[in-house]
Computed example of a mutant assay.
Amino acid sequence: MVALVPTEAHGDERGALLNFIEAQRAAIRRAAHGLTEEQAASRPSASELSLSGLLKHVAEVELNWLRLAQERPNERQRTQETWGDAFRLVEDETIPAVLDFWAGVAKETEEFVRSVPSLDDTFPLPKAPWFPEDGRVSVRWMLLHLVQEGARHAGHADIVRESLDGRTSFELIAAEQGR
């Protein structure tokens, strides 16, 4: 797996945006490469973040934005009582299960983006103090936001991983490629 987004990007804007999102997904997944569940759940820095918690969070955030764009209910929507569980694995959750869930979300995101008539199509934002009242965003905006969200958390994941065992993203890319 390379660290750069492929330049061919499927020849269109949708493909380019999806490739940039996938590059950020891969960076976050890579940060957990070769770790045990216990290592991935640890919080070795000043932050409350763990790698397994980041994996779960970004998967659920992507699903939430997808459901908003589809104007469908999110079956995994969190209540205030469970919001803290968004950043840690609970009960029988495991890294492989979270990765499988995220792969399904990623596939569904790509199918939706490929099928939407226009990236300029808009959908309403939910009521929240951080969104404008009666706000709407385009599918393009959502995709750019997913790139931003992924990049932010990929950086967090790099710091957490390096704090755990000193391994950097370039070392992890080589390890994934068997080098």
Rank of each mutant, 00 (worst) to 15 (best):
E37M: 13
G15V: 03
S138L: 03
K107Q: 08
L35Q: 09
A106D: 06
P117N: 01
V113K: 04
A16K: 11
W83T: 09
A174V: 00
L68T: 03
G15K: 14
T82Q: 12
T168H: 14
A59S: 15
L119E: 03
V113H: 01
D165M: 07
A97T: 03
P73H: 07
A174P: 04
L172Q: 11
G166M: 09
P129G: 08
P132A: 02
A3L: 12
Q70I: 00
F87G: 11
A174D: 06
T168I: 07
L125G: 03
H57V: 10
L144A: 07
D92K: 15
Q24W: 08
R179E: 08
I95Q: 12
D85W: 11
P96S: 04
R140W: 08
T7R: 14
R152H: 13
V5M: 09
I28W: 08
V2L: 10
L49V: 03
E81G: 05
V113I: 02
E22Y: 11
Q177L: 12
P73I: 02
V98P: 03
E37N: 10
K127E: 15
R76V: 11
L63Y: 15
Q148L: 10
Q24A: 14
T79F: 13
T168C: 11
V105D: 06
A106G: 09
R14L: 03
R78S: 07
S50C: 12
P6D: 05
L143S: 06
V98W: 10
A27T: 08
L35W: 07
P6R: 15
A86R: 13
D158S: 10
E149W: 00
R67K: 14
P6V: 04
R76W: 10
M142Q: 01
G34D: 00
F170R: 15
S163M: 02
F170W: 14
V105T: 12
D12F: 07
R136N: 02
W83A: 11
W83S: 11
D85C: 14
D12N: 15
A151P: 05
E162A: 14
H10P: 00
A69E: 03
H10F: 05
Q177Y: 05
L68C: 05
S163C: 00
R88V: 13
K56L: 09
T168W: 10
V116Y: 01
G34E: 02
